[in-house]
Amino acid sequence: MVNGYKPATLQEAIAIRSREKVIPYAGGTDVMVRRPEGVPFLFLNDIDELKQIKDDGEYIRIGAAVTFTEGLKSDLVPAVMKEAVSRIAAPAIRNAGTFGGNLGNGSDKADSVMAGFALDGRVRLVSVSGERILPLGEFCIRRGVTAIRDDELIAEILLPKKNCDLPYYYKKIGGRNALAISRVAIGGVYSVKDGVIEQFTAAFIGGGNVCKRFEEIEATIIGKTVDEVKANAEEYVNAYAESMTFTRGRVSAEYRKTVIMNLLKDFIQTING
């Protein structure tokens, strides 16, 4: 193959990756728009190990080359992830775009990555020298920059099973009803026992230059009663707003801030239990 490699296995792929500068290619929907020249592509789209969705008891493991459409068809993929993925672009893009690509391209508007954050997900990276599992918060550094090394490939997204069946909140605001990039999106899961919040996550698109959670704020919510949290919703929302940096892009910072705060309030008010 001229200017490309199409390994049959992950082993072969990481061997090529360790040897030479290549551009990992999973679904193509992002890389073909940017279309960097002069560097061969490493085609991962037909590597069986990267196309699996598995339940290992602790994690739901989504292979990096699983397409969004394939994810939507799977019974294993949690509801919040499905909802996020179902709103990505349009069918032809969901048919090609992958979970690994969405994470690997470092977009700060990656819907599946945001849902992964909400689920406290991790990423499994592999290379010839072994593998690393990183929380998404460590992997996503800022727009366009991730913690991946030049010799690594994304193998799987790991979603902790304990979070997968929790009640969730998800809202995406794009420029239109389809084919729209998130201007603001928010997703989170929670659990309540005897009126006390035991688990709470909230992840955001539009609250900085990277998809993000704020674990220190989450910690102040966990352990409180639902009633307390609802009564003090304003305070929590303000704490979030202060931790975020709202930037101007396709929409203004003021818009992003207002909508994120409104939706976060809505999230808190809709907590059941």
Binding site: A90, R176, N177, A178, L179
Partner: peptide, 8 residues
């Protein structure tokens, strides 16, 4: 530049 889709 966004124009309406079939879902709008």
């Amino acid at each position: 530049y966004l124009v309406p889709t079939s879902m709008d």
